[in-house]
């Protein structure tokens, strides 16, 4: 069971523990000079860049008080065809985000191959003063092989607790059976959850952008579409300390469109982790 901890001093963060075992690999590059706080990156990697049926990744994350952790991947996580549908590929993440700390989870998308069976559960426990941006996204499959929404089963569940109160349980279930008709014309879907004081700048920018939209009658669907919902009630549990939470959902005809949009829409995060660090995401 791999685990990592980032402990803050005033300007730098260190790992009190960083352990992993096959097929998972965690890599932590040295800290960056321009970071505005105790920021560290961890790359979450799988051998060969993919997971097969029966692979089960368990990742426990503790972000200690005041620390800022950025979790990234290097390339999309491929989920290969499963010989036995009952033998799913599973990823479980549990993150505990302590007082005044920050977690940015900005991985590349999951790419479920044809007849792959994938299930992930991500649980985030946030202190009321903690912040997080949680990105969860996936593509239609291996486009180069002409695979479009040919996956067998894909399930993703995200749960967020703030001060012990469940504020999000977002569960998506995709199963084969005319899946393509339901998902097209789009090839990539993303969900972003935002919480806490350090993401309020990003959230303000998103709100401004969203409120400017005036949807007129279209004769055909746009190439890219997104929505923003403010989770105002989450605020009540926080005594106003953390500000609003929010969920952003978006989709596009090509994964690249979604990637570029996300990079731009969340770019305010560079102010809390530094430009150099932020530029490592969405590459």
């Amino acid at each position: 069971m791999p685990e990592r901890r980032a402990c803050p001093t005033s300007t730098s963060a260190s790992f009190s523990e960083l352990s992993y075992s096959y097929p998972l690999k965690l890599l932590s590059p040295p800290s960056h000079a321009d970071a505005p706080g105790p920021v560290r990156i961890v790359y979450v990697l799988s051998y060969g860049g993919g997971l097969v049926g029966g692979d089960k990744i368990e990742l426990d994350v503790e972000v200690q008080e005041g620390a800022r952790l950025v979790l990234l991947t290097q390339g999309s996580t491929k989920v290969f065809r499963a010989r036995d549908p009952s033998n799913r590929t599973q990823q479980h993440l549990h993150a505990n985000v302590h007082a005044h700390s920050l977690l940015l989870l900005l991985p590349d998308p999951i790419t479920p191959y044809a007849e792959s069976y994938y299930s992930q559960v991500q649980t985030f426990t946030l202190h009321p003063s903690a912040s997080a941006i949680i990105l969860d996204w996936f593509t239609s499959g291996r486009a180069a092989r002409g695979e479009v929404w040919a996956l067998g089963k894909y399930r993703s569940a995200n749960e967020v607790f703030v001060q012990g109160k469940r504020v999000v349980r977002d569960v998506l279930l995709l199963e084969q059976g005319e899946l393509g008709r339901r998902m097209q014309p789009y090839a990539c879907y993303a969900n972003v959850f935002l919480f806490g004081p350090l993401v309020q700048g990003v959230l303000r920018a998103l709100k401004e952008r969203y409120e400017k939209i005036e949807q007129m009658q279209r004769s055909k669907p746009d190439e890219f579409v997104w929505s923003l919902s403010i989770l105002g009630k989450a605020e009540k549990g926080r005594n106003g300390e953390g500000g609003d939470g929010a969920v952003v959902r978006c989709t596009g005809r090509e994964t690249e469109m979604v990637r570029l949009w996300l990079k731009d829409a969340l770019s305010g995060a560079s102010e809390v982790v530094g430009r150099d660090v932020y530029d490592k995401a969405f590459v």
Partner: peptide, 16 residues
């Protein structure tokens, strides 16, 4: 669970 992510996005955009 929800099973139609596109429907979610479009429904949330109603007020726009």
């Amino acid at each position: 669970a929800s099973t139609w992510p596109l429907g979610e996005i479009l429904a949330a955009r109603h007020d726009l």
